[in-house]
Design a protein around this nucleic acid. Structure first.
Lengths: 225, 225
DNA sequence: GGTTACACGTGATTC
DNA sequence: TGAATCACGTGTAAC
């Protein structure tokens, strides 16, 4: 007797009614309290519980729609896939951030040469500024790789007529395309900072030897026109 | 009678027993079938259902642990927060990818100066022009006098091979000496800002008609190389 | 027939 | 009180 009661009244799917929505899972929903047992005991939170279930179901479906790979349709699998996907996204974000960070602010290889040999490059840069102000001009060329095909260079030398034109000719000769450039003259000195890129179709960035290029630049800048 | 039966046998939380684990939510679990009603009908899937519930619960908790911001502890909220977090992560990834891509490889800018001919220059030039106009960049030349022998100029135009070299040639032809210059390229456009000075010995600044010079510059910049 | 997964209705509990 | 959430045990489909 009790079993019958239980089977009739308590939880458990009833007849399926709505058509299959997404997958092969059944869609169970009672029509209305029209089952044979009419002693319907109105639970106070029956409707609320239904809405809660629907809400959670909807959220899970939304979550599923936001995750590209779904191994299974089950609730646990949906959540599990979401977890792994979040992990992948976090990893991707981390990698991209690292890559971007190291690309835009830490040039890996810096080749620098100065006519007067000093020891520490950082100090050199500071000394250079001082030197410039004092009109004691030190020729200086820096050349470093900042991207696959991109390079960054800085040239400090004395200002001579046509030196910028010569610089442009050299860039043209080497097959470099000017991305951006800054030139300033002061007290008989000239400083050129520029990002350049190897022309497409010529070669890739690996075929450029930064040290050799730097030496060549220095030599050309030194030579009188 | 039926109500009593239902209340006793069917679903519903029992006495709470284990201590509160994570939050203020109650932890309900029956000790063993020691309730007054001993007519326990071993449902074949009772234990399985319990494991399933535990599994889903664990997954949800894991999901919650992977999401930094949690507005609420409820299941629906956990899933909802996960969805918004995934959206944010996807947006971040997209932004970072765009930034990285445009930083290390600019596919549109190709030739400059006297290039080796590889692909169709006309098509590329048109593309750049379109790109430039899409960004709302218009061809423009400004030229004004800022000193006795000094002038300031700004040129905005489409990026074409050799345009910077041509600019330098024109400056040389006009007898201008570069004081400082800034060049930047973006989206098929090129912008040049420069302070120039009339070469000493040539003439004074009054002999330069800014309007005429500007028109000449505009014309030269427009002409194909 | 055994296993898995789901929705269901309910009591308990917290706010 | 009342609304909201949860765990529970079960019936029932699908594999």
């Amino acid at each position: 007797m009790t079993t019958e009661k239980k089977g009739k009244i308590m939880g458990g799917g009833n007849k399926f009614q709505e058509p299959v929505k997404t997958s092969r899972r059944r869609q169970v929903r009672k029509e209305k309290e029209e089952d044979e047992v009419n002693e319907s005991f109105k639970s106070p939170n029956l409707e609320a519980e239904r809405r809660r279930r629907e809400k959670l179901h909807g959220r899970l479906m939304a979550l599923r729609s936001h995750v590209p790979i779904v191994t299974n349709m089950t609730k646990a699998s949906i959540v599990e896939d979401a977890i792994t996907y979040i992990g992948e996204l976090q990893k991707i974000v981390q990698n991209l951030t690292e890559k971007l960070h190291e690309m835009e602010e830490t040039p890996l290889e810096i080749y620098e040469q100065q006519t007067v040999h000093t020891i520490k490059p950082e100090v050199e840069a500071i000394d250079l500024k001082v030197e410039m102000k004092k009109m004691g001009i030190e020729e200086n060329v820096q050349f470093c790789k900042i991207g696959k095909r991109k390079f960054w260079l800085k040239i400090t030398t004395e200002k001579r007529p046509g030196i910028f034109t010569k610089f442009m000719e050299v860039m043209c000769l080497l097959g470099f395309e000017i991305i951006d450039i800054t030139l300033a003259t002061s007290n008989g000195a000239i400083i050129i900072c520029s990002s350049v890129q190897i022309l497409q179709g010529l070669c890739d960035g690996d075929s450029v030897d930064p040290e050799q290029t730097k030496d060549f630049l220095l030599e050309v800048m030194r030579s009188n026109p």
